[in-house]
Design a protein around this nucleic acid. Structure first.
Lengths: 284, 284
DNA sequence: CCCCCAAAAGGTAATAATATTTCATAAAAG
DNA sequence: CTTTTATGAAATATTATTACCTTTTGGGGG
């Protein structure tokens, strides 16, 4: 959707530029941020060329003119900064690592948002709506995700549980049958235990949905793979953002199911909400 | 620090705007991308106001004028943060509710990122680094957050546990003493049980940190309130994004602690990572 | 209840800033 | 010695800003 980063394009084209154009390029690449703020006269002066030269430079890069060029530049800078600064260094101070972690999480979410198959979400919601019973399975960090999922799906008035105990998972999988959904959550999709659980559940005729990495053994082993591609953090200091993405995906699924249930389901939700009131101090 | 997203700022200010300013805001929010491309005359016409009104609008939002405003707008658009005006409607299709949920989550994160006190993060990290023992407490959805926190903090080689059982929480709070940290997570901060637990733990000399809403009874009851202000979703269909924000805040804290521990701590983390290898299928 | 004033909001038109085009000239290539 | 290409000066067009004027609004006295 977004065209290639303007700064990259400029530096790629650097050898093909003529004298005054490359002077302009040099000034812009030296401080792109400043370039977005200056006027054409300013920039021309800084590059020691005439204003029309700057204008020609802009048009060369498929922009309508100088103002449009600045706009595009600002855009590439904004998206660029966030991608570049995504890993935490040992020397980072609070401000630095805090925004890096937030930015990288936001990026993962934005990326998945733009790439996720809505078709597939629809299919998964279909299955969940028809389910007689749902099990959420996860281990380690994904155990917490499974627990959160249970907490969201119990509202739908059907038997839902989460399990982070491999033995329980195996036993439940062995007894699964048509109408049961085993919803398996795994960051890597390569955990042997979970793959075996998926196979066992499938053998019994149950539906197995896996929220996991694409092209993983787990995705291959289930009936309906629901894969999200979250760029792997190789950085030692960086937290896994796949957990977060998984949680949001489950929010989406739960919302899909709620909408499918229709408006007559709302009083039920309202009742659940009300039930918590006595446990709380009144709102200010 | 990154300035707040311009679109978010505009919609925050929406109620404080006068007639023509809100007309301008409406046009911009309806199609921000188009706004970055149009001239001031164009936009004024679209909003049925005069050009100076648009200019005044721009200055109200701390920009130098219309061109600068467009630049900032372009920047906000490129940051992966998309502005979301409406919440989920019963008539929404998959595409609509999926992006609404993602966008609203991303927005909450961006908002907290720009408003959080780094000073306070630092203080909390200080406390956590010095802890002899950490308990994470949460109920309901925050129980899953507490569980995730346990999974992140156990790496630091000190006794960490999570509890979502009120009786356990009470008993542990009663036995807490200096050097213990009770880290209480609550979306509303108004759960009576948790407030009482906080008071009990504090009475015993333990440090009580609460990740919760500002100005809540829980924030008042603890030694070190660590508040995040996540706009409340009044919408029936919309999931709570505070859970996600809390998880990311805990990521930040864990990263802070890791960095404090220094490089000699990395082999320890590496060992933990290696321990999982036999449980997995090899990576492709 | 009305009138008048003050303050705020909004528009018109003049002005300033900025960008673009046209055209002339100089340098390089053929 | 052309022809092409690169470049800048100046004119023009576009766009934004300012200054100033009109209308509206709301709030006390008369």
């Amino acid at each position: 959707m977004q065209p290639a980063n303007l700064l990259t394009v400029i530096s790629d084209q650097l050898p093909n530029l003529n004298c005054s154009e490359s002077k302009v390029a040099a000034v812009i690449l030296a401080d792109p941020e400043a370039a977005t703020r200056s006027s054409i006269a300013n920039l021309a002066r800084a590059a020691a060329v005439s204003e029309p030269s700057v204008n020609r430079f802009c048009k060369r890069f498929d922009t309508a003119g100088f103002p449009d060029f600045k706009l595009q530049l600002a855009r590439s800078l904004a998206s660029g900064i966030r991608f570049v600064s995504s890993s935490v260094d040992p020397g980072d101070d609070v401000t630095a690592y805090t925004s890096k972690i937030f930015d990288s999480t936001i990026n993962s979410l934005a990326m998945v948002r733009d790439r996720i198959s809505h078709e597939r979400i629809s299919q998964v919601v279909d299955k969940l709506v028809q389910a007689k019973r749902i099990y959420f399975f996860g281990l380690g960090a994904s155990g917490a995700v499974a627990r959160d999922a249970e907490h969201k799906f119990f509202r739908f008035n059907l038997p839902v549980s989460y399990h982070d105990d491999v033995l329980m998972q195996r036993m439940l999988a062995a007894t699964g049958s048509a109408g049961d959904i085993f919803f398996i959550i795994s960051h890597t999709g390569r955990t042997r235990e979970l793959v075996e659980v998926a196979q066992a559940a499938r053998a019994g005729g149950a539906t197995v949905i896996a929220l996991t990495a694409p092209q993983s053994p787990l995705a291959a082993a289930c009936t309906l793979p629901f894969t999200v591609d979250v760029p792997e953090n190789t950085d030692e200091y960086m937290p896994m953002s796949s957990r977060i993405v998984h949680l949001v995906m489950l929010d989406v699924l739960a919302t899909g199911v709620t909408l499918r249930r229709g408006a007559e389901f709302l009083p039920h939700l309202e009742r659940i909400k009300k039930s918590l009131q006595p446990t709380r101090f009144p709102a200010p």
